[in-house]
């Protein structure tokens, strides 16, 4: 028996919107402490890792660990039918091949349930090792989205370089080049507007902007984004979901031939 009631249903809608274009199908792993998802995109260049802890739910019951394979496009279609203020409940029964999403309006005058077919998914469960990063940049998520969008109109790849001067995003394309430098800026009115650079050693890595732009679909989930980089490791782009967990995107770098 599985029953999870999320008062802030819009959160789940936003989570799905942030990952559905990257990953088609994924196993949702439910346990008593929360649920998680880990899946690579079809080309094995990017990986999404989602965690939503049980504390974030108004009601959370998961009698035994269970894994449910879902098509994220179909799940997104169903969650789009929930209003932004709706309370969303996910229900499942042991051994069932369906999952039910229940949507309640805040005034309880409209209640809908949508039953979705589950699927068997062979997923390679990868262990993601904890790593020490050369540089960790925390910045406003909207600013990061803006930079990725702007640079993608000029080039296909972004070089992200962190030095003690700041973080530089660079691209080049047929029409020219672009460089955007952000300096550490902690003297802001609101902490979420700060750009904070933790650097142990300078680092410079190249990534495909197509993937970075896909990650920025998670912008509505968090005011800030954290970018963690070390040479020879995938970059981690993390959007924290307040008091509940995170969506993390891992992206393999591009290397010069």
């Amino acid at each position: 028996m599985l029953e999870l009631r999320l008062v802030q249903g819009s959160l789940l809608k936003k989570v799905l919107e942030s990952i559905k274009d990257l990953v088609n199908d994924a196993n949702f792993d439910f346990s008593s402490s929360g649920f998680s998802l880990q899946s690579m995109d079809s080309s094995h260049v990017a990986l999404v890792a989602l965690l939503l802890k049980s504390e974030g739910f108004e009601h959370y019951r998961c009698d035994r660990n269970t894994s449910m394979g879902m098509n994220l496009g179909n799940m997104s279609k169903m969650l789009k039918c929930a209003g932004n203020d709706d309370i969303i409940t996910i229900k499942g029964d042991d051994g069932s091949d369906t999952v039910t999403f229940m949507f309640e309006s805040p005034t309880q005058d409209k209640i809908a349930d949508f039953e979705m077919k589950l699927m068997d998914i062979d997923s390679e469960h990868l262990g993601i090792p904890e790593a020490e990063y050369h540089a960790i940049v925390k910045m406003p998520s909207a600013e990061f989205a803006r930079i990725c969008k702007d640079l993608a109109s000029i080039g296909d790849t972004v070089v992200i370089s962190v030095t003690k001067e700041g973080v530089k995003f660079s691209t080049r394309g047929d029409i020219g080049t672009a460089n955007i430098v952000l300096r550490q800026n902690t003297t802001v009115d609101k902490p979420e507007d700060a750009t904070v650079i933790e650097m142990n050693e300078p680092v410079s890595m190249t990534f495909a902007l197509r993937y970075m732009n896909s990650f920025t679909k998670a912008t509505p989930l968090s005011n800030t984004v954290t970018i963690s980089m070390s040479p020879d490791l995938p970059v981690v782009v993390e959007y924290k979901i307040a008091e509940m967990g995170y969506v993390r995107f891992y992206l393999a770098p591009k290397m010069e031939e």
Partner: peptide, 14 residues
């Protein structure tokens, strides 16, 4: 010229 690495090379065997 750039070569796109894939994640399997990082996470395989973990």
């Amino acid at each position: 010229l750039e070569r796109q690495l894939i994640l399997l090379s990082y996470f395989q065997g973990c």
